[in-house]
Amino acid sequence: MTTRIDPVTAPYPDYARDRLERLSLPDGKPLVLFATLATDQRLFERFFGGGLLDRGHLTLRQREIVIDRVTARCGSEYEWGVHVGVFAQKAGLTREQITSTISGDPEDSCWSEEESCLLRLCDRIDAGCTLSETDWRDGLAFFTPHALCEILMLCGYYRTVSYLTNGLDLPLEAWGARFSQYP
């Protein structure tokens, strides 16, 4: 494994042990991203302070569509692959929908009207770092104002995660999905 910062290995630092052990995924190891951030207590704790993987204003499916779209647009095969590998089935995403998050269009026939709106919002936020008044009104047809705020936050947070995974040159998780699996 080559990365720009070597991840921690067991035994983990006290401040990270519980979280790394609790969040270990399919192979029983913590994600390389988490183990890398655990090399610095401040960065590790701040990173986890901003997460939005709890029950919020969006369903699991909506949340995963946002995360998959944003990370794919940012070219973060690492984070996209983690989320597809862990959550796509739970969120009920089809192979066609997963492919569409990488290279598709919000108007692809595999999406409902609400999901097409969600993807358009993600694309607009990614392209312009904001939502126009029209985008906001269109979003209100399907989402509450707080859900729209959560969409903005998810887009920003996972853009940051994409910066980290790409900038740290993290190796892909062995069990994670790959862009090439969804041509």
Rank of each mutant, 00 (worst) to 15 (best):
Y78D: 12
E77D: 09
I65L: 14
G51T: 09
S76H: 12
V82E: 07
G75E: 05
Q62R: 01
R69G: 11
R63L: 06
I65H: 03
F44S: 03
R46D: 14
V84M: 06
R46H: 15
F44M: 03
D68T: 10
G51N: 01
G56S: 02
E79S: 14
D54T: 02
H57E: 12
E45T: 10
S76Q: 07
R42M: 14
G92Q: 05
Q41V: 06
F47W: 10
T59R: 04
I65G: 09
G75C: 13
T71Y: 08
A88Y: 08
L93S: 10
T71R: 04
G49M: 07
I65W: 01
E45R: 08
G51K: 05
V82N: 11
L60D: 08
D40K: 12
E64L: 05
V66H: 01
L93T: 09
L60N: 04
V66W: 06
R63P: 03
D40E: 08
F44G: 02
L93E: 06
R42G: 06
D40A: 11
V70L: 12
L52N: 01
T71K: 05
G75R: 01
K90N: 13
E45S: 11
H57R: 07
F47H: 13
W80H: 11
L93Q: 10
R61T: 12
A88Q: 07
G81T: 02
D54A: 11
F47Q: 02
L60F: 00
